[in-house]
């Protein structure tokens, strides 16, 4: 370092092309660059790579809870213990057979469901919040006893949890990290072998 300084000092004639004031300007530029770089790295990158996703239907959990619709009406285990995940359109249709014609936001959404999906018997392309990459083999069955909020956003507290997806990796903000899985598996003395969770 010192060598370069000495060389720089000896080679640059004072009051020559590089005036004294420019050193401060250079430092300022460098500082500005540093701030810009840090900002880009800390704030810009996440914003650039993440995209906010919206559900096809703005589904309100609380509105359904108020109507005394039990969680199990839509999210249930099959007769053989398999977990259904999202309900299929038949479940929605059992209540939303006809449009309400109402004016409120929720009613408009419900009508959208009826018009676009229920009548066409089309499955609603719900976006899963805690989507895992395809190489993860997750079976709901043995995890149900820990309660949904152990992994999913707690729907009793938030109605429309924010959903962001990384453009590059495809991971979502609710995607579980392997570390979290492992921590819990260790606590429960469950297997942490690759074959137990990866396919």
């Amino acid at each position: 370092m010192s060598v370069t300084h000495e060389r720089a000092a000896s080679e640059i004639p004072s009051g020559g092309r590089f005036r004294r004031g420019s050193r401060e300007l250079w430092a300022l530029c460098a500082a500005l660059g540093l701030i810009a770089g840090l900002a880009a790295g800390w704030l810009g990158y996440p914003r650039l790579t993440s995209v906010v996703l919206t559900q096809p239907i703005r589904f309100s959990h609380s509105a359904h809870a108020k109507q005394d619709v039990a969680c199990r009406t839509c999210h249930f285990e099959g007769p053989d213990g398999t977990f259904n995940g999202f309900p299929d359109i038949g479940v929605c249709a059992s209540c939303h057979a006809e449009p309400t014609g109402g004016r409120s936001e929720d009613e408009k959404e419900a009508d959208k469901l009826v018009v676009e999906y229920v009548r066409g018997k089309k499955a609603v392309p719900w976006l899963s919040l805690a989507r895992q990459p395809d190489h993860v083999l997750f079976d709901h069955g043995p995890h149900l006893r820990f309660g949904c909020p152990a992994c999913h956003p707690d729907m009793s507290h938030q109605d429309y949890p924010e959903l962001r997806q990384n453009r590059v990796s495809g991971y979502r903000n609710w995607t579980m990290s392997m570390e979290r899985c492992q921590t819990c598996h260790r606590q429960q003395s469950a297997s942490v072998d690759c074959v137990s969770c990866h396919r």
Binding site: E77, G78, P79, D80, G81, T82, F83, D134, H135, L137, D139, H140, G141, P142, V195, S196, C197, H198, R199
Partner: peptide, 27 residues
């Protein structure tokens, strides 16, 4: 999983069946 280009794969003794049960249905 659908394995991308450039990885090695092999028989796993159908380990997923050990996790999920023979029919692939957890119950």
């Amino acid at each position: 999983s659908v394995r991308p280009k450039g990885v090695v794969e092999k028989c796993t003794f159908c380990a997923h069946r050990l996790v999920l049960g023979n029919s692939g249905v957890s119950g």
